[in-house]
Amino acid sequence: MADLEALGKKLTTEGPHKVEGTPRRVRGLLGGKYVFDTTSAKYVWEHAYYPYFYIPKTAFEKGVLEEVGSSAKKSYWLGKLSAGGKITDRVLAFDHAGPLEDLVRIEVSALDGWFVEDEKLLGTHPKDPYKRVECIPSSREIRIEVDGTVLAKSSQNVFLFETMLRPRYYLATTSMNWEFLTESETTSYCPYKGMANYYNVNVKGKEIKDVVWYYRYPTAESALVAGRLCFYNEKVDVFVDGVKEEK
């Protein structure tokens, strides 16, 4: 619980990066029961990169939220949620803490499911309302190399532009030199794109793990990248129309 204690101290002394209200209906499921259902959740940016949902104390069903430990000044406390025979202690609640007063933070993975309106939340945080994902077909040639070995070459691509991040290039499966790729058991979840699967790359006796990913069933906003493969730009050499991209 030390990380939650540290976060509580940081947020009550330094404050969050930003806090905003949202009219979205937000629900949390634990043990087969909705432990909260609210249209008064707050977006809280604990840092500059993406927000979390913080839930008003008044939104919780009676008896599901319980205090298990408090700070000396009683500005925040550690809690637990219990419902349907399941319990999580990944809970941080605030009392008199400025913009976070009477709000509760629950680790996303600690619940069975989060729902924004009727859409299930994917990944470890909600979508940032100021972030946009744009998928655009492009015939610019993309060539991927590692130590001079060509792993892929394609002029039938989809470029994915995501606010504040570098472009990602999604290539057709037929553009791969498959002899260098081996399937990985890794999966991850993105709020904007869905569940990703991965490949490792093996070149000249060197293995680069999880350097290629793809989405079998992406979200609607990222539908154009379905089945296409994307290399982690920072770990390979990427050439766009023959010009090497900076890592």
Rank of each mutant, 00 (worst) to 15 (best):
T58G: 10
V64W: 00
R166V: 08
P23K: 15
D147Y: 13
D3Y: 12
V211M: 06
F115E: 00
V104A: 03
S71L: 10
A2T: 12
K62L: 09
P167Q: 06
A2R: 13
T182W: 04
Y215A: 07
G227V: 12
F239W: 15
Y214T: 11
S175C: 08
N202K: 13
D112G: 03
P191M: 03
W45V: 02
K73V: 06
S139R: 14
S139A: 11
M195V: 14
M164P: 00
A172L: 15
F159M: 14
K244I: 07
E134H: 12
Y49H: 14
F239V: 06
H47G: 12
P23Q: 14
E246C: 06
L92C: 05
A196D: 05
S154E: 01
G205P: 05
K120Q: 13
D89L: 05
P99W: 04
V44G: 04
L30Y: 01
T13H: 10
S109F: 07
E107R: 02
E246F: 15
I144R: 05
F36E: 02
T174H: 12
V91C: 03
K18E: 14
S222T: 11
S188G: 13
Y199G: 02
K206S: 11
Y199N: 05
D118M: 08
A220H: 13
Y130A: 15
Y49F: 14
R24S: 09
C230R: 03
Q156F: 04
W213Y: 09
Y49Q: 15
E117W: 05
E141I: 10
E66V: 10
T88H: 00
K193D: 10
K57P: 06
S82E: 04
E145V: 06
V243M: 15
I208V: 11
D241T: 05
P51F: 04
V108T: 03
E20N: 13
T22K: 12
F60L: 07
P218F: 06
L11N: 04
S71W: 08
S154K: 01
L7E: 09
N233K: 07
Y50S: 09
Y49L: 15
